[in-house]
Design a protein around this nucleic acid. Structure first.
Lengths: 129, 129
DNA sequence: TTTTTAGTTGACGTTGACGTCAACGTTACT
DNA sequence: AGTAACGTTGACGTCAACGTCAACTAAAAA
């Protein structure tokens, strides 16, 4: 049942539109941990997912460290009750942050909507608003 | 009818939780243009709004240049038909970008929701889900 | 009048996130 | 055996977005 697909560094680079340098840099910063075959890196689906999460994080303005924090929330690396509770709290915090960002973006969009409407009114001053 | 409120640099810094250095830096980058009284900067409500927009941009991961682009969309600095049409298109593009970000964030939130639910299930394995 | 208390202008330092070589090692063809 | 094509490890460069510090000015308070 385990997926034995694997990728080279340039395959992933191509797929996600980043350079190989970038991917190696992420490894240097401990965001990804590909295995080695000889001296070459080989990437498994799990690594691909991590890369995907990092890049999604980047798109919404997270730093690499922040993305790493979120990725770490995915692996329940501890197994006792307290750690689960702590994890749930952390996740709650992250979600709140994200909701704040959602708010900012929604405001920005509706601001732009207003400006756009104003523009259109300038163009057609005669039409009923 | 004009609002003659004005602010010092440190008032704004305090209000928005940034340093005065940051605000001066934004001026150096042509994001804000306060007037001078002697050699001191004096900030008007319009400047405050610009600062607010910049910081909102930062929170959602925009660069200063990107924020500036958006801010510029607010001032219909041109007045002919073509310029309005161009402006409307630009705004549409920005909105689309923002919708993509919205999507990323929503996905991230629902991912975290799932992880959190899974955590809770680990804690109470007996309860009906 | 001296001393705080803002504020100002440089100039240089720093940090994060990579880019850009250079020098080298495999593997795969020809 | 030679030569591409792809990979590797340093090491250094770069750019944005500030931080830090020094040396100065102006106004206000003690």
């Amino acid at each position: 049942m385990e997926d034995d697909t694997s990728y080279t560094i340039s395959q992933l680079a191509e797929e996600f539109g980043v350079t190989t340098r970038t991917i190696r840099f992420y490894e240097e910063k401990n965001l990804i941990h590909p295995r080695r075959e000889g001296q070459k890196r080989i990437y498994k689906p799990a690594d691909r997912v991590r890369l995907h999460l990092i890049l999604r994080g980047k798109r919404i303005g997270l730093s690499l460290d922040e993305s790493l924090e979120i990725i770490d929330l995915y692996d329940p690396s501890g197994n006792n009750k307290d750690q689960y509770l702590a994890l749930i709290r952390k996740i709650e915090e992250k979600k709140q942050q994200l909701h704040l960002q959602l708010n900012d973006i929604e405001h920005m969009i509706s601001d732009l909507d207003r400006v756009q409407e104003q523009c259109k009114r300038e163009l057609n001053p005669n039409e009923a608003q």
